[in-house]
Measured scan of single mutants.
Amino acid sequence: MPGGGPEMDDYMETLKDEEDALWENVECNRHMLSRYINPAKLTPYLRQCKVIDEQDEDEVLNAPMLPSKINRAGRLLDILHTKGQRGYVVFLESLEFYYPELYKLVTGKEPTRRFSTIVVEEGHEGLTHFLMNEVIKLQQQMKAKDLQRCELLARLRQLEDEKKQMTLTRVELLTFQERYYKMKEERDSYNDELVKVKDDNYNLAMRYAQLSEEKNMAVMRSRDLQLEIDQLKHRLNKMEEECKLERNQSLKLKNDIENRPKKEQVLELERENEMLKTKNQELQSIIQAGKRSLPDSDKAILDILEHDRKEALEDRQELVNRIYNLQEEARQAEELRDKYLEEKEDLELKCSTLGKDCEMYKHRMNTVMLQLEEVERERDQAFHSRDEAQTQYSQCLIEKDKYRKQIRELEEKNDEMRIEMVRREACIVNLESKLRRLSKDSNNLDQSLPRNLPVTIISQDFGDASPRTNGQEADDSSTSEESPEDSKYFLPYHPPQRRMNLKGIQLQRAKS
């Protein structure tokens, strides 16, 4: 015994090295194993092979420090690593049964499904019991997946119906949107047309105001020219009257000059006056001389005659003075006559000038009245044309509004008919989907599995289990394997941990 101590140590070291070499393959693929292994699927088989106990299973599945599946799978690998070579062998058998691809990844061999460990530990009855539990578990999982698949199909059909409904609603909204954009385009076109009409109206108003201003300026210029013409006519008439007055005065002077006595007659009258003065002096001298030589009687007679002569001279002087006064009065009367005649001529000139001015103003008033009548006639014609244009424009607008209203009513009726057609199509689609759903539900009910399987069917299934373990590994792997896509769409199922009653199965096998 003492001599065998070193050999035992060498043997233990060799086993430990082999164990480390075995687990080295697992550690190399630890990331892939932790990512894809579900500990809840492996722990029943590991407990059946007595590699882990209930406490280890509870620690792996329910520990609060292991929230994710990767953490739980890593903890399970750590626990199996502590179990040595047996933990490695049982772990590979569980991978061979549940995850053939991972088994091939770790060992590089094809899975054979021999279950040597569980046969050694529990015997064939334990293997049968384990396989029966796994089959029931798989059936329950398949039923749950079928239910989930039916629910998802129903949800899918519902979503398809909602999608069709949303599509129809979208078509309806597109119809309304198209109608909205069309009405918006019509409104924009009408606004552009309105702005264009306003611009045209403004341009016409500006043109009309400009023409009116030009016409008023032309009328004012015409009036100024007419006033200048009238003033020139007035000056012409005044000059004609002055010329006529000057002509009359010149004719009067000419007549006075023609009626003036001649120079010879004046000289002859002056000679006669001198001769008479000479004779008068001679007679006076004779009379003076006679007075001195005459007697007293003759002197008395001469005195009487002288007195008579003096009286006659006085009378004559009075007559001469009277004649002079009369001549002066006649001259003054002639001057007054000439003055009055001049005033008369001036008044006649003024009267004729005023008459011509009156005629001029009368003509001017007639011209202004004619212009006013023409302006009123043009204004009435413009008003009439404007009223006709406004009436025609309003009539066109009324007809346009009428046609637009008819078009809008027809478009609304068309839209309502399209919407009604879309709604009826939606109703038809809904009815078809309901009919299809009812038909599929009836087919699913016919094809669904019963909840409680008979014992004979279970025994028959387990009677055929042994050949399947040898020759149909691919079928078992397809039913027991969970793909990543299934984990996305289906909830994980945790079967209840219970042991099955095998009395009925044993009785059935005894009868057979």
Rank of each mutant, 00 (worst) to 15 (best):
R113G: 08
F97Q: 06
C49M: 14
L80R: 01
E93S: 04
Y45E: 01
K69P: 01
V90S: 09
K143R: 13
F91I: 05
M132Q: 05
V51I: 13
N25V: 09
S116H: 07
K16V: 11
R72P: 00
T82F: 06
N38M: 05
M132D: 04
L127N: 08
L33T: 01
I37Y: 01
N71E: 02
Q48D: 04
R30L: 03
Q140E: 09
E96S: 09
A40V: 05
E54H: 06
K69Y: 02
M142A: 11
D20G: 11
D9I: 10
I118P: 15
A21L: 10
P111M: 00
E93D: 14
L61T: 00
H31R: 05
F91E: 06
Q55D: 05
K50A: 10
P67A: 09
H124L: 10
E27P: 01
P64Y: 08
G4P: 12
V135M: 04
P6R: 11
G5C: 14
E59N: 00
L76C: 03
H31D: 07
N133L: 08
E54Q: 05
D20P: 09
V89K: 07
G84R: 04
L15S: 11
N133S: 08
L46A: 01
T43W: 04
N29S: 01
I37F: 02
G123D: 15
L131K: 04
K137L: 10
E54F: 10
P44A: 05
A21F: 10
E54I: 14
V106S: 05
G74V: 06
E57L: 03
A63M: 02
R35M: 04
I79N: 02
G123N: 15
S34A: 10
M12Y: 09
M142V: 08
N29C: 04
K104L: 02
R113F: 03
L138G: 15
P6E: 13
L33I: 14
L138V: 14
F130A: 14
G84L: 04
K145W: 10
D20I: 11
C28Q: 09
G84C: 04
V119H: 15
L105A: 11
I52P: 01
Y98F: 11
H129C: 15
P67Y: 14
K104A: 08
Q141P: 06
M8T: 13
Y36T: 14
L80K: 01
A63H: 11
C49W: 14
T112R: 14
I37P: 01
A63G: 11
Y36W: 14
E13S: 10
V119R: 15
Y103A: 08
N38L: 04
H81M: 06
N133W: 10
G4N: 10
M8P: 11
G126K: 13
Y98C: 15
D10H: 10
L80Q: 01
N29K: 09
T128I: 11
Q85H: 14
H124R: 14
N62G: 01
T43G: 04
E59H: 07
C28A: 07
D10C: 11
P39A: 08
N25Y: 09
D53N: 03
P67V: 07
G84W: 05
R30H: 03
E57T: 01
K109N: 04
A73Q: 01
R86W: 07
